[in-house]
Design a protein around this nucleic acid. Sequence first.
DNA 1: AAGCCAATCAACCGCATGCAG
DNA 2: GCTGCATGCGGTTGATTGGCT
Length: 217
Amino acid sequence: MVRTPCCENMGVKKGPWTPEEDELLISYIHKHGHNNWRALPKQAGLLRCGKSCRLRWTNYLRPDIKRGNFTFEEQDTITKLHQLLGNRWSAIAMRLPGRTDNEIKNFWHTHLKKRLQVEEEQRPNLMNFSPQCSSYQSTNYTTIMTNFQTSPHEKEAVTIFSNQFMLTTTTDHHYVPRIDDQAQSSGKSISEIKDHHEVGDENMTFWYNVLAQSRYT
DNA sequence: AAGCCAATCAACCGCATGCAG
DNA sequence: GCTGCATGCGGTTGATTGGCT
C-alpha cells in the first residue's frame, strides 16, 4: 500500500518560519481554531503543510508555552520521570505545564543525559535501574520492595507519588487529583498540600514512587 | 578577523495509533 | 474486519550561535 503524503509537496515551503507566517497562523487559529490541520494552511493562506503548522503551533506559538531555562525542580522531575517512563516525552511533558515534548527531549539530550552519565561514572556502585530491568541487584531495592508489599501505607505512597509528579492516572479507581486541583478545591496552598505528604528520606520516597507507578503499568 | 568546532534547538521525517466510513 | 485519513509521537537533521584558537 502506498502511503499518501501528508501534504502536496509542490509549492509547500520548508525551513524556519517567518514572523509573517507566525502571525498568519496565530490569527487564523484565534479566529477559527484548529479542527483540521490538513486544511488549515490553505484556509489561512500559508504555503506550509498541516503537519508543519501543527508543530509550529504546539511547540512554539501556543499561548501557554513557558519560555526560559528549566528550573532545578523541572530538571529533577524530568530526570526522575525519564527513569520511570523512558523516552516517552509527551507523557513527561504532561507533568510539566508549559513545556513541550520537543523542548524536554532537546533538553534531555543536550543537558541531563550528559550530567547523568557523569554522575553514573562518579558513582559506579549505584543501582542501574530502568523500567525494562528484569532483575535488580540492589539490597536497598529489595528492602523497599518488601516494605512496599507489606506496608499499610501503600495508598499513602501512591498519593505521595501522584502529588510529587502531578500525575493523573487513566483509571477512575486509581485517580488522584493533581496537586494544583487539590489546592484549589481545599483552599490550601500548594506548599501546604506538599508538606502534608512530605517524607524525610528522599531516596526512599523516590523508590516508593517507582513502585507505585509500576503497579499501574 | 577568520576559521573551526561543538552545542543548541527548531523543524522535518517516518512510523504508530485512533477513528470514521 | 478492512481501508484510508488525520493526528500524535519520537528519532533525527541541519541551520544557527557562541566559544576557542
